[in-house]
Amino acid sequence: MANKVMLKISKDALTQIHAHGEQAYPDEGAGFLLGMENGSRDVQAIFPLTNSREDSARHNRYLITPNDYLKAELEAERLGLSLIGVFHSHPDHPNRPSEFDRDWAQPFFSYVITSVQSGKAIESRSWRLSEDRSQFIEERIQIN
């Protein structure tokens, strides 16, 4: 699976993800990936959201509420797209998923994680939850 799955994303969308992570710093920033799955998985837009975790936890946790989920789903439908994943930032931490990420992960979704070091977005990697929920498997990001 690790060698087969891939996430295609435009440079512009990736730049927006990095900018959102930098704006949220030193807190975590998050939002949805909107796109299509048609042989390959293509991100065509992003939907940045406010981190709804309480102030004291926002530096290492993020939360997207059911209301925000519904807003994102409506926006995806309006654009003729689907929700295909989630992006979030790891302030001053590597762009690998945490155990907490895995516990709360949805199947199917791509999880793009961006490491933001000292306020500057460094690099993004993407992951999908394995079918047995035991681990995340990295998928290659192809920047178009």
Binding site: E28, F32, R61, Y62, P66, Y69, L70, V86, D101, Q106
Partner: peptide
């Protein structure tokens, strides 16, 4: 059914 999306 709506998932809360969360992580850390």
């Amino acid at each position: 059914l709506i998932p809360s999306i969360a992580g850390g």
